[in-house]
Amino acid sequence: MRASFGVWICALVVLPMLAVLARAAQGGFAGAWEAITRPAAVHALGLSFGLSLIVVGIDLIFGLATAWALVRWDFPGRRLVSALVDLPFAVPTLVAGILLVVMLGPQSTLGGAMAGLGIDVIYAWPGMILALCFVTLPFVVRAVEPVLEELDPAEEEAARTLGAGEALIVRQVLLPPLLPALAVGAGQSFARAIGEFGAMAVLSGNVPRETLVGSVYVLGEVEAGDSVEAAAVSVVLLVVSIIAQLVVSQVNQPWGQE
């Protein structure tokens, strides 16, 4: 049983990943280094990295606020908002890109108006950030929500009766239990954003050294037949997202069960 499952996982996951590593290492370390330090590659990787960091920052702020609103307030339409938060889990990311193109593209009313003001959204950084926010929207919200639900308001009340001010309550009572959940949400968002492809492919415009992100750069190299270059850049993206994923699983099991 375990042997057949092991073989299946090796054939489906481990072997392909090793193949990428092997291909990246084909030209030796120097070759791989040369591949990932080409100016276009550096720009694409840097862009992916930078955008992901910005998006994680936005996610943390709005994700915490959204979770707070969903848990602590009963407003009309709460269930609808909750359902909207889940949608990006299911909606294909390519479709997410299309959605934003429809809403903010040059032909749309909104996009036209903004273009008139000299603001490019689609095929530019603002649109890319919005798209990444869309696809990563649920992670922080859903990571934080259960923790907020379990937080007993009595703890805040206790702190208040002990004379603590609001700032102190947030810092000392609310934040500490939320930190692991925020870290999990941030890690998941980052891993998703750094590898995001579908939404970027339709909405970034893919201009090298301007709006071309790492994953789309990899596609370009594959289509150009340069699999060594593609593999080298992939390894960088892989390592970063796997580290983010490991951070998530470490925080999820802080006491190292097993």
Binding site: I9, C10, V13, V14, L15, P16, M17, A19, V20, A22, R23, A191, I194, G195, E196, F197, G198, G214, S215, V216, V218, L219, V222, S227, A230, A231, S234, L237, L238, S241, I242, A244, Q245, S249
Partner: peptide, 21 residues
């Protein structure tokens, strides 16, 4: 760990990996 890997790997890289393999 390998079972969770597909959650972390960019889809393009998945494609690339099989193309190489």
């Amino acid at each position: 760990v390998a079972v969770d890997l597909p959650l972390a790997v960019s889809p393009v890289i998945v494609g690339l990996a099989f193309v190489i393999l």
